[in-house]
């Protein structure tokens, strides 16, 4: 039983607004799924339903074979959830707070002590254990919220924007923490930061207007870009027109674009047909026609462009 999270047709309406519209997905043990999407796309609402905070209007969320709406307590026992903004009881110290969470989670005695020590080490909270959470910096607060979620070593982790507001070092630390736990758990992470998907996620799911519009690895998503695997070349401006003519004549090149035209140097892009690798063709063709290139690289595209392409066009993500 490796499918730890199964969402099936999950739908949630707020008044006339359908915040989540029939989201279905499964997350297996060992997967880190990144939820991407514009603000208000339904990422948080989906996570809230998976974590048992909201009841879906229709559809089911299943965690470790327990229906979250039918057996909330059993399902919640398997879930570590960090809500958006990582809310914590501000007047408590991190230690008192983690003790409270441990107690609610049914950890007692030495098991509780060990869980707290392990978690405090993993989230690097040792220095602030006796300071009230209200007085902590945003980065520490976020880590307290994260500590609370991983305290009972849950099978399923649902983290709503875990790195939001952290500095680059803290981000790096949280990401490596997530990665280090990934093997044993099924993890869902929502984020605005697309580089995070490359850094921690095994799979990305783009949600827009309550629907899944794309689902795949970072590489698969980039493959959707028009210029994925296109070849960009920097060369002397005097060779530009000749190079363009050479490349246009190649059957594997779809069309060429002039990216920039300068006095000395210019840049040219050769688009592929069907996003195939065309590097070898391009290099051979240019060399045999005596065109010198300063630089040549294969464009992968970045997820930001994928994201924009998918979430701003209506046709972009018809079937993922």
């Amino acid at each position: 039983m490796d499918e730890l999270i199964i969402l099936d047709g999950l739908t949630k309406r707020f008044g006339s607004l359908t915040a989540v519209d029939g989201i279905s997905l499964t997350v297996e043990k060992g997967e880190v799924v990144g939820f991407l999407g514009p603000n208000g796309a339904g990422k948080s609402t989906t996570m809230k339903m998976a974590a048992g905070f909201l009841e879906p209007d229709s559809g089911t969320a299943e965690v470790c074979a327990y229906d979250v709406a039918q057996h909330p307590r059993r399902a919640k026992a398997h879930i570590g959830y960090m809500p958006e903004g990582a809310p914590c009881y501000g007047e408590m110290t991190p230690l008192a707070f983690l003790r409270f969470i441990a107690e609610v989670r049914g950890l007692k005695g030495s098991a509780r002590r060990e869980a707290i020590i392990r978690t405090v080490d993993a989230t690097q909270l040792r220095g602030v254990l006796h300071q009230s959470i209200d007085t902590l910096s945003k980065g520490f607060k976020r880590r307290v919220g994260l500590a609370q979620a991983i305290l009972h070593d849950p099978d399923v982790l649902i983290l709503d924007e875990p790195t939001d507001g952290l500095d680059p070092n803290q981000k790096h630390h949280v990401r490596s923490l997530i990665k280090s736990m990934a093997k044993e758990k099924a993890i869902i992470v929502s984020t605005h930061i697309l580089e995070e998907v490359d850094a921690v996620c095994t799979r990305a799911i783009v949600i827009d207007k309550g629907k899944i519009v794309a689902d795949g690895t970072s590489r698969e998503l980039k493959h959707r870009l028009d210029y994925n695997n296109a070849v960009a070349i920097r060369l002397n401006s005097e060779d530009l027109d000749r190079a363009r003519a050479v490349l246009d004549a190649l059957p594997s090149v779809g069309k060429t674009q002039i990216l920039s035209r300068g006095k000395n140097k210019s840049r040219l892009r050769a688009m592929t047909v069907g996003r195939r690798q065309i590097t070898a063709d391009v290099i051979d063709a240019l060399r045999s026609n005596g065109v010198q290139t300063d630089e040549l690289f294969v464009e992968q595209g970045n997820l930001d462009d994928v994201f924009r392409q998918i979430t701003t066009s209506d046709t972009g993500g018809a079937n993922a």
Binding site: R73, P83, V104
Partner: peptide, 13 residues
């Protein structure tokens, strides 16, 4: 403060 989301996702009724 939003802690209700935390409280209500703990395994309690």
């Amino acid at each position: 403060s939003g802690t209700i989301e935390l409280l209500m996702t703990l395994p309690i009724t």
